[in-house]
Computed example of a mutant assay.
Amino acid sequence: MRVSVPTIPDSVLRNAQQTVKVTPAYAIERISRFLGHGSGKTAVLTGAGVSVDSGIRAYRGHRGSYLNPNYKPIFYHELMEPTAKGAGFRQRYWLRSYLGYPPVRDAQPNPTHFALAALQYSSITPHVITQNVDGLHHKAIHHVWNAERREKGILELHGTLHSVKCSHGHTMERQQFQDMLGEANPQWKAFAEELERTNSRPRTNPDGDVVLPEGTRYDQFIVPECPSCLRENRRNSMIKPEVIFFGESIPAEVRDRSFDIIDQNDRLLVVGTTLATFSAFRLVKRAVQNHKPVLVLNVGHTRAQELAAVETIDMPAGAVLRDVVKQVLGSGAAENKTVAKMLESGVVRTPPDDYDDPVPRPTGL
């Protein structure tokens, strides 16, 4: 099986026109007008760029290429292969994810998450479709929306890192499985605790994968068996996070719901994504085909540049979205205490742009 990692097609990058630089004031005014100053309904589609200010790296840079040139993801068919080879892929994945999950788990929403939450709370953007698996959109609005309301308003297109599922369909909270991984691998647990104590966590991709040095003995890492399967007298360590891996199909109900959201709303605002994955790009194409306005707010090139009907603003969302909310809501942004608090909330912890983060080097493993 040959499965490729999605990226922006070279033909798009070659033919992309030079992006016109605009001022923040222009961007704020243009996005506010796009949102209709509160009239109509707008769907929002977000990507990894939204979470950068929370300390989670984006996959791709300004030109659409991977920020980590050595990034080698594990594909779905590799991870879930019921052979010794598949078991080896699971050892590699879960060791790297065991170290990479805590930074994602502990990340906090940034001002962009809260600005989008304020627009949702105010019914300007009823639905957010996110490609991110970090759960930060949920964190930004959990204090005013219960779990049922969040599930209706936020569609996680590519799943979530915060739960896991075995090959027989049993699920559990990710932190429970994280604890099981630590108990089964006490040396790595001690190493992970040392990373947290010294705040020297390794480079982490948006999917929780980390870089480890050449020569790491993945074959010595123990992947626990599913406890529910054990209770059914079955041994099964074929476990994966509830994330859509490269080469894995999005569930039909998620795909159909994403289409419904595009169809239900009057326009589409795209924030912080190159749209390299087809699952996201096809939503933009669907909106265009249905003659709905599409505005992209992103730094650098996007796949949407092959669609003439799509308008693009090249700017970080964090530079403008708070002011967009204030302009769209007018005096209500200050008078509504919930919205006002959202617009004062958010961490900013931008990761460095370099490729050469220190690689953790455990001893005695």
Rank of each mutant, 00 (worst) to 15 (best):
161 L>N: 03
161 L>V: 03
161 L>M: 14
162 H>F: 14
162 H>V: 03
164 V>M: 08
164 V>W: 03
165 K>H: 10
165 K>I: 15
165 K>A: 15
165 K>M: 15
166 C>P: 03
166 C>A: 09
166 C>T: 04
167 S>Q: 11
167 S>F: 07
167 S>A: 15
168 H>S: 13
168 H>Q: 14
168 H>Y: 13
169 G>E: 06
169 G>H: 07
171 T>Q: 12
171 T>R: 12
172 M>D: 01
173 E>T: 03
173 E>H: 13
174 R>W: 01
174 R>N: 10
175 Q>W: 15
175 Q>F: 15
176 Q>Y: 05
176 Q>T: 14
176 Q>W: 00
177 F>G: 01
177 F>E: 01
178 Q>R: 09
178 Q>K: 11
178 Q>A: 14
178 Q>P: 01
179 D>S: 13
179 D>R: 02
181 L>V: 03
182 G>E: 05
182 G>H: 07
182 G>T: 03
183 E>G: 15
184 A>P: 00
184 A>N: 06
184 A>Q: 04
185 N>D: 02
185 N>A: 11
186 P>A: 07
186 P>G: 10
186 P>W: 00
186 P>R: 00
187 Q>E: 13
190 A>D: 09
190 A>P: 00
191 F>A: 15
191 F>R: 05
192 A>Y: 09
192 A>F: 11
192 A>R: 15
192 A>G: 13
193 E>Q: 13
193 E>L: 11
193 E>I: 02
194 E>L: 13
194 E>D: 13
194 E>G: 05
194 E>F: 09
194 E>P: 00
195 L>Q: 00
195 L>Y: 01
196 E>M: 12
196 E>S: 12
197 R>V: 03
198 T>C: 06
201 R>H: 11
201 R>K: 03
202 P>Y: 06
202 P>N: 11
203 R>E: 10
203 R>M: 14
204 T>H: 01
204 T>S: 05
204 T>W: 00
204 T>Y: 01
205 N>I: 00
206 P>T: 10
206 P>D: 10
206 P>C: 12
208 G>N: 04
208 G>F: 03
209 D>M: 03
209 D>T: 04
212 L>W: 06
212 L>C: 07
212 L>Y: 06
213 P>N: 04
214 E>D: 14
214 E>Q: 10
214 E>L: 09
216 T>S: 14
216 T>Y: 09
216 T>L: 08
216 T>P: 07
217 R>C: 12
217 R>W: 05
217 R>Y: 08
217 R>S: 14
217 R>Q: 14
219 D>L: 12
220 Q>E: 14
220 Q>N: 09
220 Q>H: 08
